[in-house]
Every structure is written in structure tokens, then in C-alpha cells.
């Protein structure tokens, strides 16, 4: 049956073509993003930047390539994917690793000074600034005494100042 054979070969060709196309697409096509869900990945990344990688001490979980950091990233991803909020995930990690694990210390009794310190400093400094300014505005310039006048004139006339030059 020539017709059938023809159809069959056509189908084979089409299949082959499709395969080639797929192969080509695979070889020269779009690279696959590491994550299937870029929105979730962005959330994971944002949260990981605020987490301290405990074994590397001063890197965030987002930057570190240490195995524990990978675990923590996976844990964060899993929980966010399961619908937990950022805060719930952070609380979960704090319950296991302590406050040390987050780069933003929680606001509580022991960190009051940390969070309010800069504001207190600013208020104190501005207070001192205002005080200084008021005093300066009220200050009346003291007129020069006769001795000072003479010295000033001498200085003006006889430059360089009367000091021992360094030899």
C-alpha cells in the first residue's frame, strides 16, 4: 500500500523533524532558570540576605556556599512554598538557632538601647548644638586691650611670626 507507506514515511519525517527541532531548541535555545518559580526565588533571596550563615559567621545565607546555608535556603524555600509568611519562617529559625541568626535584631528589652540609641544620640547632640548656638549668638565680642593691639600691629607688620625657625 503505497499510500499508507507514504503516510508512514511522512509521519516518520515529521517526527524526525520534530526531534531535530527539539534537539536544536535544546542545544541553542533558552537556558533553564535554576528555579521554576522566580517570584518565590526572589522572596527566598530577599529573606536569606537577612539571615546569618552560622558556620561562616559573617556572611548572609544568600551569599554563602556552605552546606548549612544551602540547608537553610532550602528550608526557607520549602516553608515559603508551603504558604508560610516571612515572619513565620524567621520565627521558626529563631526558635532553633536563636536571635543570632537574623541580621535585624528583634526589638525587645535587651535591644532597646540599640534601636533607640541613635535617636537619643541625635537628640542629645542637637540639644548641645542649640545650646552652643544660643550662647554664641549672645556672646559680645570682647574689645582688644592695648597690649593686644600692639601685639597685633607688630604681627601684621613683621611677618613671619616671631618663632624660632627649625634649622
Amino acid at each position: 500500500m503505497p499510500a499508507e507507506r507514504f503516510l508512514h514515511s511522512l509521519r516518520t519525517a515529521a517526527l524526525l523533524l520534530a526531534c531535530c527541532a527539539a534537539g536544536a531548541a535544546h542545544a541553542a535555545g533558552e537556558a533553564v532558570p535554576v528555579s521554576d518559580d522566580p517570584v518565590l526565588e526572589a522572596r527566598v533571596l530577599a529573606l536569606s540576605h537577612n539571615l546569618r550563615c552560622l558556620v561562616c559567621q559573617n556572611e548572609s545565607v544568600a551569599e554563602s556556599r556552605a552546606p548549612l546555608a544551602v540547608d537553610m535556603r532550602n528550608q526557607v524555600r520549602e516553608q515559603l512554598a508551603a504558604g508560610k509568611s516571612e515572619k513565620e519562617v524567621v520565627d521558626f529559625l529563631i526558635a532553633r538557632f536563636g536571635d543570632f541568626v537574623v541580621f535585624t535584631p528583634p526589638f525587645k528589652a535587651s535591644t532597646v538601647l540599640l534601636w533607640l540609641g541613635p535617636a537619643i544620640l541625635l537628640v542629645a547632640a542637637l540639644g548641645a548644638f542649640a545650646l552652643r548656638l544660643r550662647r554664641r549668638q549672645q556672646e559680645v565680642p570682647v574689645p582688644l586691650g592695648e597690649a593686644e593691639r600692639v601685639r597685633a600691629r607688630a604681627l601684621l607688620e613683621a611677618a613671619p611670626p616671631p618663632e624660632e625657625p627649625y634649622k
Binding site: V101, F103, P105, S110, L114, G117
Partner: peptide, 27 residues
Amino acid sequence: GAVLLGTLYPLFLDALNMGKISVGPPY
């Protein structure tokens, strides 16, 4: 003063035995 406070605060807390915290970029 603020940068100094943030840098040394974990040390202060630790010295006073009030726990360990990290103060990082967000602060």
C-alpha cells in the same frame, strides 16, 4: 556613634550575658 553602637552592641550584650545577637546591614 550609631555605627559604633551597632558594631559593639553584640559584644555588650554578650559581656552582660544577655544573649547573642547579630547586627547587620538592615540596622
